[in-house]
Amino acid sequence: MAVKDYIRERFFPHMWCAGCGHGIVLNGLIRAVEKLGIDKSAIVMVSGIGCSSRIAGYLDFHTLHTLHGRALAFATGVKLSKPELNVIVPMGDGDALAIGGNHFIHAARRNINITAIVMNNRIYGMTGGQCSPLSGYGTLASTAPYTNVDQSFDVVQLASAAGATFVARSTGFHVQQMTEIIQEAILHNGFSVVEVMSQCPTYFGRRNRQGDAVDMLKYMQKITTPIGSKAKEQNPELIERGVFVRKELPEYCSAYDTVIRRAKEGK
């Protein structure tokens, strides 16, 4: 494995806390890209704001570190302008689904060939542990000191309903599955969403008494199960992992090529 071929080594060690799940996503993403053998100059990584978005700076691709929540809007411009580029958009849960929620559902609706990776650690880490739209009812956060009464989104259901044509979920514990899913998501011709459950031991773990990074990964192992497993039938509370949606619909940039053809023919 030549992980170092894909990173900007001078910025390491990275800025994330010890045991941060985002590092595992970085790790898995590099392996996925390496296995696919994509030229680094053919990849544009567009990120927003938050702990998650710093992933772009560490990778030796064309990298665009943008505004909070807006990464998919910037990425849409990049992709439509130059469809031959592989566009990957790593996002945090707040970034993707609170401030960026509108861009998220509309990118999914358009089915533009972008790979969105939602690094879901259920918290705003960069600003010190405020609750996010994925923190969940009953959790604790610096802005939910008496427990959070906000219900959370289900990323998979939201993305599927919005029209994403590839939707999957994995965790920082299930690294092989995560890497394989990211690979498939990049190859998928359409809007793909990969939710990776990522641990934030510093804010979410500590405040919600989930222990350290190791404990949090063990917990992810315990509360998740492959899609359609027997375990799920017995315990409906379990969170399913795997590929939920894999379908073909006209991809936006290809569809726009038809518009160009019609315009040129005068129809």
Binding site: M1, V3, F12, P13, W16, C20, L26, F173
Partner: peptide, 15 residues
């Protein structure tokens, strides 16, 4: 099995 390498959040392990 390389799981340590793959799970290392710091990219600090090489097998």
């Amino acid at each position: 099995c390389r799981l340590c390498e793959m799970r290392c959040p710091d990219l600090a392990i090489e097998i």
